[in-house]
Design a protein around this nucleic acid. Structure first.
Lengths: 116, 116
DNA sequence: TCATTTGTGTAGTGTTTAGTACACACTACA
DNA sequence: TGTAGTGTGTACTAAACACTACACAAATGA
């Protein structure tokens, strides 16, 4: 699914139960022109800036990492973490490229348990 | 150390023993104008494109991930891996933000040993 | 029925990115 | 002593990015 499709669906879903989710109102809260959001929802324009994606995620109650990923972007927050220790993270990520989801999840839990 | 400083030093180090590492020759092999490389080495211009950084790394025998990191960038290769499974990787990376190096290294080895 | 609200088409714009082109002065060296 | 190679200053630019401004037709709803 494209970025545009995704946010249009998310918005329409909200609009079912909440009148405040017209394209114009969302655009207003997010801080852009309605015509611009319209084009983005229909993939006439490419996905917007990281800031606008984050704002959209907050307004629509979606996961910003997922929305950014649909836009082919990575949050600057995560980029900065990696860039601080490029070799370490580069190797880890390459190793995990083809690992199954559960293997990665297990790592997350290992670290959560803080056993270092 | 800045990106410019770093590549200038790397180039000058090579130039000690190899005449083929003048600014002009490196620029030629990498595929840019000498004046441009000159400005980059002195941080008059911001770091160049990912492609040029990768070419520079290859020519100077440096680690492309490190060079990209000095430029504040992440290779599109790594970005794509993350973007394929954004939630999983986002959580892992955030968890590892403040983990000590050896903890991350241990993870790398765990995956290398392929115990999933 | 008429004012409001809705989404959308067309056109234009400021900023950033990622460079090029050319001339110049200095140094090495044959 | 000239010519080949060195790095650098100034000026310019093409393309991509991230939007805005305004007008318009269709639907809604009091």
């Amino acid at each position: 699914m494209s970025f545009g499709d995704y946010i249009r669906q998310a918005r329409l879903a909200r609009q079912q139960t909440d009148k405040g989710y017209s394209l114009r109102q969302v655009a207003g809260r997010v801080g852009v022109e309605p015509a611009y959001l319209s084009k983005i929802e229909r993939d006439v324009f490419p996905p917007p800036s990281e800031q606008m994606i984050v704002n959209l995620a907050a307004d629509l109650g979606e996961d910003p990492d997922v929305l950014l990923a649909l836009a082919g972007k990575l949050s600057s927050e995560l980029r900065e973490i990696i860039v601080r220790r490029p070799q370490l993270f580069a190797e880890l990520i390459r190793q995990l490229k083809d690992a199954p989801d559960h293997a990665i999840l297990r790592m997350v839990r290992e670290v959560t348990d803080g056993d270092w």
